[in-house]
């Protein structure tokens, strides 16, 4: 576990982006998330770790109200984005998701060209006033996702024809293109090989300068490498939340220690 010291632990700002208080999630009768409080700081990578089924993905999906698409899911408590409750009836979940982008576990490019994949969000939200502006957004997004050099000559080819790692970066470009403030990543590297994983991790660190990134991961090494803050979930509860270095070197809860040393999980 030496690599956990590889990243500097500075948190650049202390502006709170998202504050969650007393969040409970129910799937039908199942109590999936129990009374979770989390603060997501701007321009920071926050990692959610924990064993399978501990609710970290569920909680992530609360942050952009993706759970709304599941009929039986019910969310209680308050989640504030920039001081505004995202579960307020005034808030349009569709608009919210443009502000809180999401990258999924499996790369899921649309069966369209690379260009159309990236232009999808801007087109829907009317972010570009003409074709030139759209071109610019697409280029900028692909550059941010470190895919421009590989994709610039084949923008009209289907996104499904890229390799797995490229597809995932395309999905990141697609999310970045809507100009989000927060990027949620649900195990973005679990379907990728080590080289592609390293590229994505590097990318996540760069994305931190513009967005606050929340990443769910199964790999503790990955959490240690890319994040500044780590939250450990276990059986639907938030066990421990704090500086990544602190969690990994000096956990205060015995369950956290058991998990990072491999005794539960």
């Amino acid at each position: 576990m030496n690599d956990m010291r590889a990243v500097e632990r500075d948190v650049d700002t202390n502006d709170l982006k998202i504050t969650a208080r007393g969040v409970d999630v129910f799937y039908g009768d199942t109590h999936a998330i129990k009374d979770v409080d989390v603060d997501i700081v701007d321009n920071t990578v926050t990692a959610f770790i924990g064993p399978s089924g501990c609710g970290k993905s569920t909680f992530l999906r609360c942050l952009n109200r993706m759970n709304d698409t599941i009929d039986v899911a019910r969310v209680e408590g308050s989640i504030m984005l920039d001081g505004e409750d995202i579960y307020d009836p005034k808030v349009d979940p569709v608009q919210l998701r443009a502000k809180v982008g999401m990258v999924f576990q499996k790369p899921n490019p649309f069966p369209k060209s690379i260009y159309d994949n990236v232009a999808y969000g801007p087109r829907i939200h009317g972010l570009a006033k003409d074709k030139a502006a759209l071109d610019e957004i697409v280029e900028k997004s692909l550059r941010r996702a470190a895919l421009w050099d590989e994709a610039k000559d084949r923008l009209d080819q289907p996104g499904t024809g890229l390799s797995g790692g490229q597809q995932q970066r395309l999905c990141i470009a697609r999310a970045v293109a809507t100009n989000p403030e927060v990027l949620l990543m649900d195990e973005p590297c679990s379907a990728l090989d080590p080289i592609a994983t390293a590229q994505i991790e590097e990318l996540i660190d760069e994305l931190r300068s513009r967005y606050s990134v929340v990443i769910v991961t199964h790999s503790m090494q990955q959490a240690a490498r890319v994040s500044q803050k780590t939250a450990f979930f276990h059986l639907g509860e938030l066990v421990e939340f704090g500086e990544t270095g602190h969690i990994f070197t000096n956990p205060s809860d015995p369950r956290t220690e058991s998990y990072i040393t491999g005794r539960i999980g």
Binding site: R97, K106, N108, P109, F110, I124, C171, T178
Partner: peptide, 27 residues
Amino acid sequence: VPQSLRDGSFGLGATHSETVKQVILPA
């Protein structure tokens, strides 16, 4: 059509009918 495509579209802030029209029907 895989659910992941729907999720991807919803995750970008598309409405249901936009998702149907632009992602699901083409697929």
